[in-house]
Design a protein around this nucleic acid. Structure first.
Length: 419
RNA sequence: GUGAGCGUAGCUCAGGUGGUUAGAGCACCGGUCUGUGGAACCGGGGGUCAUGGGUUCAAGUCCCAUCGCUCACCCCA
């Protein structure tokens, strides 16, 4: 039998109710802050991510679904949202819109990793971007909106981690420093970290490998924050102060390093406490200058993305149910052959105001009531010989068992009153 | 990409050390029950035992490979 490809899933039922609810909630929360939805293609040219996300990032190095199309273009199934949104931002001249331009998106992303709980090859994100202003208040608002979303969903068991990765020049100085102090310990590092030493020493700080931890300990590595420029430091403190003023609790994390190369200054992640290995619900930060990497003018920006799949896991872990489909209002039951057409016509008349289903062949009442119950209907409407002669319908409430016969023209109003 | 565990009906699972026609519960269909209820009882349809190869008189059961799932590493959403 043909099955869904590894790491991809069919979403339906409860899972899709969750996803729909999360996306609807995000829309409400983000549009209230003046954000405009944007849908960009799933397919992008490879350079959007190679230049945007960064050629040394894990995502570009080993996780991208890339192929060459018939025209010889190198295309990629997007591994994340921001780079594509910024490509669109430039392409449509949004830099002349009143700043900051707030955009949000949702949709599937693709990464070729080994699947596990909370990690899929096709996964879904909701993201938010605010482009054009470098004010700390824009960072603080972005974080506040992320929290608004979590709260609107009723989630409680999470923590915000906040840090700063400095400006590119700060990181360059720090990387140079790291290479210098770690070089003598090169042999003691893990294989991965020896490669990182060349490409991006910063990432070594993230390593959980005991060997690396030991080296970092012995080398007495100074934190990145010692290398921050005054501007970056002031910016970070301002963001923290604004969050405090909003009453937002966060955990300061000097080691926070985001996986995408484009981040600058503010960085944050939200972790859920009951999710196992893949605990990050989402994350983001400031990415000033990303637009320049994509060939446009250099513009400031800040944004985040949350994993819809992980939000679903978190909601389940906290026992928060998804609002399901609306209950079936009425199940129409033809009692003889002639009533089938009447039931169909009546169903059409009542929709879409009411959710109506019907039996497509005559059934005995007892049988039909069971059918209605299985479908979760609140009411059963009987259409038989007697009702036809009188131009009526007999409607029975399944909860109380109470039954009334009323003229067919009166049914709509009767249902309306009940609703 | 690395490691470990696991693949039996639509779902959840039984099937000691290999031994007739592979089972249960739930779900589904029908009946008891031809104008009125959820229950109960009776019956029914459903399986290439993940796939391929091997060992054996004999494989759901043992061995190998492949595929898939799960969890972890890694990384992150």
């Amino acid at each position: 039998m043909i099955k869904a490809v590894r790491g991809t899933r069919d979403l339906y039922g409860e899972t899709l109710f969750y996803k729909r609810w999360i996306e609807d909630t995000a829309r409400r929360v983000l549009e209230a802050a003046g954000a405009l939805e944007i849908e960009t293609p799933i397919l992008e040219e490879a350079p959007v991510f190679e230049r945007g996300v960064g050629a040394t990032s894990d995502i570009v190095q080993k996780e991208m679904y890339a192929f060459t199309d018939r025209g010889g273009r190198r295309l990629v199934l997007r591994p994340e949202g921001t780079a594509g949104v910024m490509r669109a931002f430039l392409e449509h001249g949004m830099k002349v819109w009143p700043a900051p331009v707030k955009l949000y998106y949702r949709g599937p992303m693709f990464r070729a990793e080994r699947p596990q709980k909370g990690r899929y090859r096709q996964f879904y994100q909701v993201g938010y971007e605010a482009v054009g202003l470098s004010e700390p208040a824009v960072d603080a608002e972005a974080i506040a909106l992320l929290i608004d979303l979590l709260r609107a969903l009723g989630l409680k068991d999470w923590t915000i981690k906040l840090g700063t990765v400095g400006d590119p020049e700060d990181r360059a100085r720090y990387n140079a420093y790291l290479r210098e102090v770690l070089e003598p310990y090169k042999e003691a590092l893990s294989e991965d970290s020896r490669a990182r030493l060349v490409r991006n020493p910063l990432r070594i700080l993230d390593s959980k490998d005991p060997k690396d931890r030991e080296v970092l300990e012995k080398a007495g590595v100074r934190p990145l924050w010692d290398f921050l420029s005054d501007e970056a430091r002031v910016h970070f403190r301002a963001v923290e102060d604004l969050l405090k003023a909003l009453g937002i609790a966060f955990e300061e994390d000097p080691t926070l390093v985001r996986g995408l190369d484009y981040y600058a200054r503010t960085a944050f992640e939200v972790h859920h406490h009951r999710l196992g290995a893949q605990a990050a619900l989402g994350g983001g930060g400031r990415y000033d200058g990303l637009t320049a990497l994509l060939g446009g003018p250099s513009l400031p920006g800040v944004g985040w993305a949350v994993g819809t799949d992980r939000l679903i896991l978190a909601l389940e872990a906290e026992g928060i149910p998804a609002p399901g489909a609306p209950a079936l209002d009425l199940y129409l039951l033809p009692l003889d052959e002639a009533a089938v057409a009447e039931a169909l016509a009546l169903a059409e008349q009542l929709r879409p105001r009411f959710r109506v289903e019907l039996a497509y062949q005559p059934k005995r009442p007892g049988k039909g009531i069971k059918e209605a119950e299985k479908r979760g209907a609140r009411l059963v409407g009987f259409l038989g010989e007697g009702e036809r002669a009188r131009g009526t319908i007999s409607v029975k409430r399944l909860d109380t068992g109470e039954q009334t016969e009323l003229p067919r023209e009166a049914l709509f109003g009767w249902l309306e009153a009940l609703k």
